[in-house]
Computed example of a mutant assay.
Amino acid sequence: MDILQIVFLSLIQGITEFLPISSSAHLILPTQVLGWPDQGLAFDVAVHFGSLIAVILYFRKDVWHLIRDGLGGFKTGQFSDEGRLAWLIVLATIPAGLAGLVFKDFVETHLRSSAVIATTTIVFGVLLWWADVGGKRRDELGKLNWKKALMIGGAQALALIPGTSRSGITMTAALMLGMKREAAARFSFLMSIPVIALSALLLTLELLGTDSVVWGDIILGVVLSGISAYLCIHFFLQFISRIGMAPFAIYRLLLGGALIWMIFAR
């Protein structure tokens, strides 16, 4: 890859990982639209790792409290709100983990196409808008129970399909279940930690035994994706209660429409 491709893909990954517009779509499309070579597995690991570092650093206090109280509850026999939330995040991660193990190869082989991305971009964009407009938006994270966490986790499993957006589908599900926008976004971001970590681990295991790693590209990818992801989380949480999901839904519709036009214009 040349420096332009590295910088572009790193920034795109960092920004789109936590916005409800699909990071996988934005990493796949440049290779098909701009004719760039595929960035390769090692670079995918790098940019995901950068996003993981960003979300852990941004929520470092929350992460510490979740780990401390989640494990500490077994000693005391009582779980605080943070301890209960920690195990709800674990519960919500299970469906995506199982779906990844079962369907990953099928998705990689059959669903990484512009047509699939265009369809999911539009469909889940409309669904995001509908959830934001129709949701009651009254519940904070403290109102979350195991049934709702499992439903959001089930929705997260759909993010295996390119164009769906992991953050988008989890926020959509949370909004449908009556959560406030900021609470939905916060839970989505905290849920991303085990999912991104597991994804990066699986990709790393696939890399073992290969010699295709260009460490300069890797380090630059980690740094740029980490910085852009950190800033994205910060500003998204600052403004989401005011701007809502409409701008992201509109963007998805425009992107999906442009992809359809490109498909038929070939």
Rank of each mutant, 00 (worst) to 15 (best):
G97C: 08
K104Y: 06
K143N: 12
G163L: 10
L127A: 10
T121G: 15
S114F: 10
K147L: 13
K147I: 04
R138D: 08
N145E: 11
T121L: 15
L128H: 06
E140Y: 13
L141M: 12
S114C: 10
V126D: 05
S114W: 11
A155C: 12
A115E: 11
K136V: 00
L127E: 03
R112Y: 01
L111P: 01
G163M: 10
V116T: 06
L127I: 05
F106V: 09
G153M: 08
F124D: 02
E140Q: 14
D105P: 01
A118D: 01
F103V: 01
V133R: 15
T120F: 14
L101H: 08
L111F: 09
R137A: 12
N145F: 06
K143I: 02
P95G: 10
V133H: 13
T109S: 15
K136Q: 10
P162C: 12
A159C: 15
G153D: 03
G142A: 12
L98M: 12
L144G: 02
D139H: 06
L160Q: 15
L160K: 15
A99H: 03
G125I: 00
A96Q: 05
L111T: 01
W146V: 03
A157C: 05
V133K: 15
L111W: 04
G153L: 08
E108W: 05
R112G: 00
D105G: 10
Q156K: 03
V102A: 14
K104A: 13
T121V: 06
G154W: 07
L150D: 07
I117N: 09
I117T: 03
L144S: 05
E140H: 13
P95T: 01
T119R: 11
F106D: 07
A99T: 00
V102K: 15
T119P: 05
V123F: 13
K104D: 11
L158A: 13
W146R: 12
E108A: 14
I152V: 12
G163Q: 08
K148V: 04
D132L: 09
K136I: 00
L101V: 02
L101C: 08
R137N: 11
T119Y: 11
G134L: 02
G134R: 07
L101W: 05
M151R: 12
P162K: 12
I161V: 14
K104R: 13
L150F: 14
K104I: 00
V126C: 14
T109V: 09
V116E: 06
L111E: 05
K147G: 11
W130V: 05
R112I: 00
A157P: 01
A155M: 12
D139Y: 05
L128G: 06
G135I: 01
G142R: 08
N145T: 00
G97A: 09
K147N: 06
G97I: 00
E140T: 09
V133D: 12
I117P: 02
V123E: 04
G135F: 04
